[in-house]
Design a protein around this nucleic acid. Sequence first.
DNA 1: CTAAAACTTTGACACAGATCAAACGCGCTA
DNA 2: TAGCGCGTTTGATCTGTGTCAAAGTTTTAG
Lengths: 248, 248
Amino acid sequence: MLKEQIKSLPHECDDCPIRHRAVCARCDADDLERLEEIKYYRSFQAGQTVIWSGDKMDFVGSVVSGIATLTQTMEDGRTQMVGLLLPSDFVGRPGREGSAYDVVATTDLMMCCFRKKPFEEMMETTPHVAQRLLEMTLDELDAAREWMLVLGRKTAREKIASLLSIIGRRDASLNLRGTKGPLVFDLPLTREAMADYLGLTLETVSRQMSALKRDGVITLEGKRNVTIPDFGRLMDEAGDDSDGGMFA
Amino acid sequence: MLKEQIKSLPHECDDCPIRHRAVCARCDADDLERLEEIKYYRSFQAGQTVIWSGDKMDFVGSVVSGIATLTQTMEDGRTQMVGLLLPSDFVGRPGREGSAYDVVATTDLMMCCFRKKPFEEMMETTPHVAQRLLEMTLDELDAAREWMLVLGRKTAREKIASLLSIIGRRDASLNLRGTKGPLVFDLPLTREAMADYLGLTLETVSRQMSALKRDGVITLEGKRNVTIPDFGRLMDEAGDDSDGGMFA
DNA sequence: CTAAAACTTTGACACAGATCAAACGCGCTA
DNA sequence: TAGCGCGTTTGATCTGTGTCAAAGTTTTAG
């Protein structure tokens, strides 16, 4: 039943260490067999912590379904979200003992994990895994750098628009839709989580959401269900003409 | 003479694609020979642009000496620095045509370059190159994420302290010194560049530098030469107890 | 040595977003 | 149905940083 649940999700390959991604085509039978031995699935409930910052991590893996966040916290409690993990995103760092971040499930979450030690050994002998991981890491780096621009230079309104456009785009691509025509999706984040992502307070997030709604840039059904009637308009609000690589 | 100049710098290996780093030990004679064929050096004067955002890049490489910055710019001119390239840092992205950022030399700069196409081919057949590049990219990703916390949640004073501690630490490690005892170094950045890095205005940077000086956290000789009498104190000001991986 | 340019400091004031506070709405459970 | 809890909205006020302006300092050019 678990297996069925996983199979029904949109991804390219069940057995590749890097799910949903193009490396699969390069896996040969031996690779797959070795992977099968070290692979297992873990599920988490919304709100559960997957890994605490500083804890030893004995696996790497990727998100199969659901959403998790990556956050950093200062001693005095200020927190900054540094990544949003959506299906197909990779978690963990080969070659490092502990996690540098808290990883928290914000919805019910399914992960495909590989025991770390054997995965690392496999990386040594299977070049395309390291190559694919490099590609993905470079994507993440680009995304992080784009987010630095958002955090450093954008206004509150632009920040909100940037976040919505990223989630909207990513949601569209997961569901194999384009960004033409109205986009409807459920926000997977509370106002507080949005604030932590954007370096704002939750009150400011709430005010700006109201403002975007008042100005017709978005429509809200309840608190979470967002409609974006015109994606281009939203991009303008985000002050963003680039293609926006975050979570690409 | 150029060769002499390069040899005199502190690094581990002249011929490794990833200078100053541990991969060198794993290069064999064949690797080195192939690298030699595709390697060349380029130098830039302070202020020169190495690559424009969007331009095609036909090389990858690493900084041998000097300092460069990686910046993103919005249409209306707002800019955010997203990386500081110090000696040993890698530039360019295998597998991607153009650069996403402006790369600008802030001091006179020497780079060790490899023609991109053959370098990529070499990566396919030489696993440890991709592995080492992955390690370095993961370090950069951690650094970028740490910087997200600085940009999103720290006050102006904390931001300045964070930047000084990063430059101070990095400078110390390049010169094989520790961070015990007073640290003296020249700031390689103008107030404006610091502002672009920290998501502040240059006036705020100037004010906070004056404040840190007034409070005895730092001493300034002229505008650029900084002394940090007590590194621990500076770390406290940065609100930062971690080891601070930026540029690690 | 002087003038011009570039960078930096300092001041006065404005404003975006933070903080503090209260009330609202919705989904629970009893 | 009432009552509670949690997330959200909205209001009033405060404050850190931005903006605009001017003067000081260092470097470069002539």
